[in-house]
Each structure stands twice: as C-alpha cells, then as structure tokens.
C-alpha cells in the first residue's frame, strides 16, 4: 500500500515528469495558452499514459526484446489515434484548438519514457498507478502554467473574466517566449522548495 501511495505522490512534486524528469515539454508549452485546452490535453495524455502503461506492463513478459521499441510505438500510436478520434467526436471545438498537438502525444517523451522506465519492469497494477501519478504531475504543471498565461495574457481564467475588463492583456506571455520564461521560473521555485540542484 505504501508503495502505491508513493508511486502516485512521487511524480507530483519530487519526481515531476516536466520539471524534474524533463519529459514532455513540447506539449506543455504549446497548449498552455488557455486553461481549457490544457485541461483537455492533460486528460487526453493521462488516459493515454494509463492505458499504455497498463498494456505494456501486461505484455512485458511475452514481448520479444528485439521489437520492443516498435511494439511500444504501435501501442501508443493506436491509443493516441483513439483519443484523437474520441475528442473529434465528442469535444469538437476543443479538438480543433489542440490541432496537431494531440497527435504529438505519440512522441511525447512522458509516454515512451514511463513505458521504458517503469512499465517494462513492474506489474500491471503498479504501472497503472504510475501512469496515473505521472499524468497528474504533468497536468498539475500544465494547469499552473496555463492559469498564469491566461490570467496575465487575457485577464480570464477558464474563459471567465477574472481581471477587470479594462485590463489590456499582456501579449508577451501568450507568445512562445512567455511560456519558456514561466516554465523556467516554475522550475526554479519548485527546485528551490524540494532542494534539488543540478550540477552542470
């Protein structure tokens, strides 16, 4: 039980996929302009991650090592296509805003990374929980970044006006540089709190 709890909580802060493991950065930056899109993206990624971890963990003993990578790729790609199609059918508006980035979950290193680093060595139940934990860790950062960018950039949060209408919006945080700098600062704060120092 303790192990389960640790597997969920660890990726939330001490071993966060984005700020500590440095995985899955691309999408974290690209979809965080609005909270709504980040939320859906987190949901899509977490589901794909849980399923892929589970499936790969189930297959881990029968999978021939020679074609390990390509099998993982196939499983992940199929799951992503599933997610993409479900989004298109049931959340059409959001899926349009996410455009190619749902597809890019395939090359999102979190999914591949967790499959390689965790699911291949651990039983299905634990892998599933690991997928969930990492998904949560990813979502947490995404939502924080998106909240900052949306509030500063547009004066809204989840499309609700939170700052006075007179607030003009800051263009820089909406553009690429803003995303980079915000993530940089979040990493700084988070690493200062957990006392992790990287030696260059």
């Amino acid at each position: 039980m303790a192990k389960l709890k640790e597997t969920v909580l660890d990726p939330l802060s001490d071993n966060n996929p984005i700020t500590v493991q440095v995985l899955g950065i691309c999408s974290a930056l690209a979809v965080t302009i609005k909270v709504e899109t980040s939320f859906v993206m987190s949901l899509a990624l977490t589901s794909v991650l849980i399923c892929s971890n589970l499936i790969i963990s189930l297959l881990r003993n029968v999978m021939p090592s020679k074609i390990r990578m390509i099998v993982e790729m196939t499983v992940i790609a199929s799951l992503v296509i599933l997610a993409d199609n479900i989004l298109k059918a049931y959340m059409y508006d959001v899926s349009r805003q996410l455009s190619v980035f749902v597809g890019l979950i395939i090359t999102n290193c979190i999914v591949m990374g967790r499959a390689e680093a965790f699911a291949l060595q651990n039983p299905p139940r634990l892998s599933l929980v690991d997928g969930f934990g990492n998904g949560l860790g990813y979502s947490a950062i995404l939502i924080v970044v998106a909240s900052l960018r949306e509030v500063i950039g547009f004066g809204t949060w989840y499309n609700y006006q939170v700052l006075p209408l007179a607030y003009e919006g800051n263009g820089l945080v909406i553009l690429a540089p803003g995303a980079f700098i915000i993530i940089g600062l979040i990493i700084w704060i988070q690493r200062s709190v957990i006392h992790k120092v990287e030696e260059d």
Partner: peptide, 15 residues
Amino acid sequence: ISTTVAVLKQRQDDN
C-alpha cells in the same frame, strides 16, 4: 482503430 473510427465517423462528420 478501425472499429472506433467506423463507429465515430458519423458523429465526427455530423460535427
């Protein structure tokens, strides 16, 4: 994949 696409196709096209 083909099953999902086939099942959801109509809904997507409607959207």
